[in-house]
Simulated assay, not measured.
Amino acid sequence: MTAPDTAGSERHLDLRGLKCPLPVLRSRKALTELKPGTVLVVEASDPMSVIDIPHMCNEDGHELLAQDKTGDGLRFTIRRGAQKNAG
Rank of each mutant, 00 (worst) to 15 (best):
Asp52Leu: 04
Val41His: 14
Ala30His: 07
Ala66Cys: 12
Pro54Glu: 01
Asp60Ser: 06
Leu31Val: 09
Cys57Met: 03
Val50Asn: 02
Ala44Pro: 01
Glu59Ile: 11
Gly61Ile: 09
Asp52Tyr: 06
Cys57Trp: 00
Asn58Gly: 15
Pro47Tyr: 01
Ala30Cys: 08
Glu59Tyr: 12
Ile53Phe: 05
Pro36Ile: 04
Glu33Leu: 14
Ala30Trp: 04
Val50His: 09
Asp60Cys: 07
Val41Pro: 05
Cys57Gln: 06
Pro47His: 05
Val50Ile: 12
Glu63Gln: 15
Cys57Arg: 00
Thr38Leu: 07
Leu34Ala: 03
His55Arg: 15
Ile53Gln: 00
Leu31Lys: 09
Asp60Gln: 15
Ser49Leu: 01
Gly37His: 13
Glu33Met: 13
Lys35Trp: 05
Asp52Ile: 00
Gly61Ser: 09
Val50Leu: 14
His62Ser: 03
Thr38Gln: 11
Met48Arg: 14
His62Trp: 02
Pro36Lys: 04
Ile51Lys: 14
Gln67Arg: 14
Ala30Tyr: 05
Glu59Cys: 07
Ile53Val: 12
Gln67Gly: 12
Leu34Trp: 09
Glu43Met: 14
Val42Lys: 01
Leu64Met: 12
Ile53Ser: 02
Ala44Met: 03
Ser45Leu: 03
Gln67Val: 09
Ala66His: 09
Pro47Ala: 10
Thr38Ile: 04
Leu34Glu: 13
Gln67Glu: 15
Pro47Glu: 07
Asp52Glu: 13
Glu63Ala: 10
Leu31Ala: 04
Ala30Ile: 11
Ser49Cys: 12
Ile53Thr: 02
Glu43Ala: 15
Thr32Trp: 08
Ile51Arg: 12
Val39Glu: 00
Leu31Ser: 03
Pro54Trp: 03
Thr38Met: 04
Leu65Tyr: 07
Leu65Cys: 01
Val39Lys: 01
Asp52Arg: 07
Asp60His: 13
Asn58Val: 05
Pro36Leu: 07
Leu34Ser: 11
Asn58Trp: 04
Leu40Val: 10
His55Asp: 15
Leu65Ser: 05
Met48Gly: 02
Gly61Asp: 08
His55Ser: 15
Asp60Ile: 00
Met56Glu: 10
Leu40Asn: 08
Met56Gln: 07
Thr38Phe: 01
Thr38Val: 15
Asn58Met: 12
Glu59Leu: 15
Glu43Phe: 14
Leu65Val: 02
